[in-house]
Design a protein around this nucleic acid. Structure first.
Lengths: 189, 189
DNA sequence: TCTGACTAGTCATTTTCATGAGTAGGGAAA
DNA sequence: TTTCCCTACTCATGAAAATGACTAGTCAGA
């Protein structure tokens, strides 16, 4: 049931429409949860029905109207309660790691190709997160911002996302190097 | 559909029974994929039906018989093909990160409690992975083992698991420090 | 003017994951 | 000797996530 809390958490800092929420979750900066558009729309409907958020219609010209949602007091209480529940352990679930597990039994060049793709993606995300962080803290240093900034939650989760992608990248690079070296050694024999 | 490939990859290095597979996936060292016992048993049945693995009955005394599974040539081919397909991007999906996203709106002490729990869990896993790695490489150094060891796939995935948990731990510690400092500053005001 | 992309969504279906309970014999500890 | 844990699984159900198709108007570019 964490999706609903993820949506609540995302709506804390600003009123968003379903579409904007989808963008925030799907495109790029899904730094703290990942979800499909349809899931989000469905969850918004459920959350409103349960009174944890309220929506208001915004009439627009030259484009479809939208509904902006914000968290209610009941929603805030729900989030606070959620914080009290035990967090389940986080775990790895990554296609690419499965492929590497089988590294000794599959084609090395293909695998290196996949790892190279992923390394590039990870690097792009690292840069993106870096930019997001710089934007959030403005002209303050990180220390300064974390000490005295108003809302640090999103910054902290973004830091986790950054470290995760950095870890992804480093691991890919290391793994590529290992596989390359072994392939070269094989040829020499 | 990565679960089936994860199971195949797990069976590459040794013949395992469903129960042993469950232990390997569930308990502790789920370094490259996470899955529920029932999922694994179901997947084994499907894999055998599809001819990607074969099982043989092992009669045991004083305990239930078991079926050991190993990967067939078709299974190996399937894994190789899987390596060729694009890996989907990996993403975060972690309860705790959601809680931190809402940090500015929920009870700080509760949140610090959760983070402390997670930090301890992560630390335990770091140690566990460290031990597993030392066991795998025996008396060789890591460089030595990665260069000349026979099977490095499981070692490489374990390295990823280690880095992930280390990242988890570091982030928790950092986040706790930030929240503590802000709480102290609030009191002084 | 046709194409494709963007905003702002909905509906339906399937696949995957998670949960809990049930079976059945063996061995160890209270 | 009752209770609990370990091996080795199976069955059933429900919740969550992924996939694909569809609507409908606007705008920019070829």
């Amino acid at each position: 049931m964490a999706l609903r809390h993820a949506v609540l958490a995302a709506l804390l800092d600003e009123e968003l429409s379903g579409y904007q929420l989808v963008k925030a979750f799907d495109l790029g900066v899904a730094n703290f949860w990942h979800a499909q558009p349809q899931q989000l729309y469905a969850e918004l409907t459920r959350l409103e029905k349960d009174g944890l958020i309220t929506g208001r219609e915004v009439v627009q010209e030259n484009r479809p109207n939208k509904r902006l949602f914000k968290v209610t007091d009941a929603g805030l209480a729900e989030l606070d309660h959620f914080t009290g529940t035990a967090a389940k352990p986080s775990f790895m679930r990554d296609d690419l790691v499965v492929k590497v597990q089988a590294a000794d039994h599959v084609d090395t060049d293909t695998l290196i190709g996949r790892l190279t793709e992923r390394a590039a993606m990870a690097e792009a995300k690292v840069e993106l997160f870096g930019k997001v962080l710089r934007t959030m803290r403005g002209d303050r240093t990180e220390e300064e911002f974390l000490r005295h900034g108003e809302r640090v939650g999103p910054y902290l989760t973004c830091l986790r996302g950054l470290a995760f992608e950095q870890g992804n990248h480093d691991w890919c690079v290391r793994t590529i190097a290992v596989l390359r070296e072994r392939a070269a050694a094989d040829v020499r024999e």
